[in-house]
Design a binder for these strands. Structure first.
Length: 162
DNA sequence: ATTAATAGCGGCA
DNA sequence: TGCCGCTATTAAT
């Protein structure tokens, strides 16, 4: 298959680890999740990704659609749902039910949770924009606190306080 | 191959 | 408030 490489992106929030090959991004790890991977290091062929990630973390709206993702590992429903989640605009959220609805299974809100758990492309596939109804935050597969932090970043836009 | 468990939600009592 | 069913997927049996 395609040879897998890894690269790191330094941000004020920590170091993100990106696994990728020539066809697209295979996986993204939050800071602190470094999996001790044994794949060779390489340079990301998408030059602006690091810059975009830093802009995003500082509150700017970033369009991730130009970065190709390797979604071959996902099951059909998971793939469909993540595709929809990817199109939730910056700063907006939807519920598990709405996400499942858009993926073609209106009653699969529980399965939606399973699908989001399987997301290997956090931030680029904004799983943090799917929240539980009733004002609850819902779960998150990443490090504790990251979901809330990402939502706050998007809500604040350019921050007004220090 | 079958069962249990999971980022949940909505209906109903 | 609490119980039930529903959906896709995975892990365990």
């Amino acid at each position: 298959m395609h040879d897998l490489y890894c690269d790191r992106i330094d941000t004020p929030k920590g170091v993100f680890l990106i696994l990728f090959h020539s066809e697209g991004i295979s996986r993204i790890y939050f800071p602190g999740q470094d999996p001790e991977c044994s794949c060779p290091e390489g340079k990301l062929p998408w030059n602006n990704l690091a810059e975009d990630l830093n802009r995003y973390l500082s509150g700017e709206a970033v369009d991730w659609s130009r970065y190709p993702l390797d979604t071959s590992c996902y099951r059909p429903f998971t793939k469909a749902l993540l595709e929809e989640v990817r199109q939730i605009p910056f700063g907006r959220v939807c519920t598990y039910r709405e996400a499942a609805e858009r993926a073609g299974s209106p009653r699969a809100c529980r399965a939606a949770g399973q699908a989001l758990k399987a997301n290997r492309h956090p931030v680029l596939v904004p799983c943090h924009r799917v929240v539980a109804s009733g004002g609850k935050l819902g779960g998150f597969s990443g490090p504790p606190g990251w979901k809330q932090m990402l939502l706050e970043i998007e809500a604040g836009g350019s921050r007004r306080e220090i």
